[in-house]
Amino acid sequence: MSLTRADVEKVSLLARLALTPDELDALTVQLGEIIRYVQQLGELDTRDVQPLSHAMDLTNVFADDTLLPSLDREQALANAPKRDAECYRVPAMLGDESSR
C-alpha cells in the first residue's frame, strides 16, 4: 500500500487540517516513508494473537451515581475563543443537530 498525494489530502480533511501545497508534498513523502517503515509489522504472523489495547488487565471500574459540583458558567466558558453571556459561539453549521 503506497500513499498518494490524493490520499494525504483526503486524510487532511478527515483530520480537519488545512495543508498548503508544500505541506502536502512533504507529508506525502514523509508519511509514505513512515508507512513503509511500519509495514514491517506485516512480517509477523499474528493470526491467533489477541490485540492488546490496555497495558493493564483492569475491568469494571465504576463511579457511584452521586452528584458533584459542576463548574460555574464563567469558569466553563473562561477559555472559549468566542462566547456570549451563556454559550460558546462557533461559525454556523450545516445540517441538523439530531441524535447521532
Binding site: F62, A63, D64, S70, A76, C87
Partner: peptide
Amino acid sequence: APNTQTCPVCIGLPGSLPVMNRQ
C-alpha cells in the same frame, strides 16, 4: 440554564478523563 451543568470531563478540557457511571 445553558452551560451550568458541565465540568472539565464533559466539556472535554485537556487532561480530563471519563469514569463510568455504575448506575
